[in-house]
């Protein structure tokens, strides 16, 4: 079965950048691209145990008459095949249901608020809901299109980080690009982390496929993240815990996404490895 990425097309220069990222991602790892050109500002996504209503920002409806031509132009330039999604089901007449059985989805940092807010450290509430509910990882592209030359997995030792590592491995294998690992140690030694990886049956992969393990026992995250290659695709696991726990304890994913301008692939708590 082919693997598919869902992209919600925005017919603006900003939307073009994210779309180019999606196209690049698809051609790098051999995905087929599914494009949805929104007909109305709202749509629903029914996940396994949640339904998310996405209220798009109005710029998504810009120039509906040129949108498909623009999208096709970019797709053809990349020599990719793509499918345009037409919603089949409607919860209400203006409320289409968008399928959720994809393998990836590309979301800019925010899809329901004004795009002028886009900046580091901000991920819109809808995108968060999607990350939290989806079985697929969400690609949050950098603001401007930039090809990536390696894959870096942020490994914090949790079970979700193991999933992220697995995904990073798969992407590196499919794209033939080198894989790095990044760990900001929290009172544990390198051997502890290695043990965790070996327990998950990935010891051999760690030996063979990982080019470099950035391992930091001291120093601030901001300082250490400078070592991450600027042209790397980040893969990071996100917890599903709620707002309060995030506020109290913070979350590595939050910190990383607020510092790193790279494209990030976020592995949510419901992610089940199908890719």
């Amino acid at each position: 079965m082919e693997n598919r990425l869902l992209h919600i097309f925005r017919n603006t220069p900003l939307g073009r950048e994210t779309f180019l990222q999606s196209i690049y991602f698809c051609s790098q790892i051999g995905l087929s691209l599914t494009v949805y050109i929104p007909l109305s500002t709202k749509f629903l996504m029914y996940f396994e145990n949640d339904v998310v209503q996405v209220d798009l920002d109005n710029s998504y409806l810009t120039g509906p008459e040129t949108a498909e031509a623009h999208a096709r132009q970019l797709i053809e330039a990349a020599g990719l095949r793509a499918k345009f999604l037409t919603p089949k089901y409607f919860t209400a007449s203006t409320l289409p249901d968008i399928p959720t059985d994809f393998d990836f989805m590309c979301c800019p940092r925010t899809i329901s608020d004004l795009s002028s807010k886009v900046g580091l450290g901000y991920i819109g509430p809808r995108v968060r809901r999607i990350v939290g509910a989806a079985r697929y990882p969400v690609l949050i592209p950098s603001v401007a299109y930039k090809p990536w030359q390696s894959v870096i997995v942020f490994f914090g030792g949790s079970s979700n980080a193991v999933k992220a590592f697995r995904l990073g491995l798969a992407i590196s294998r499919r794209s033939g690009l080198p894989l790095d690992l990044y760990t900001q140690a929290e009172g544990r030694s390198r051997a502890d982390y290695r043990e965790g990886i070996e327990a998950a049956g990935l010891g051999q992969a760690l030996e063979e496929s990982v080019r470099h393990w950035y391992f930091f026992e001291s120093g601030g995250l901001e300082e250490n993240l400078y070592n991450v290659p600027h042209d790397a695709l980040g893969v990071v696991g996100a917890f599903g815990h709620g707002l309060i726990r995030d506020l109290l304890f913070g979350s590595k994913m939050e910190e990383i996404q607020s510092i790193l301008p790279n494209s990030l692939l976020i592995v949510g708590p419901k992610y089940s490895a199908r890719f």
Partner: peptide, 26 residues
């Protein structure tokens, strides 16, 4: 709240028949 008009019962039956009764909080 960004919802359509209508009385809502069809939406409930639709959610029940197609999506295992998933409905939005709003």
């Amino acid at each position: 709240v960004n919802e359509g008009a209508g009385h809502g019962v069809p939406e409930v039956v639709y959610a029940v028949s197609r999506y295992g009764g998933l409905m939005r909080f709003r």
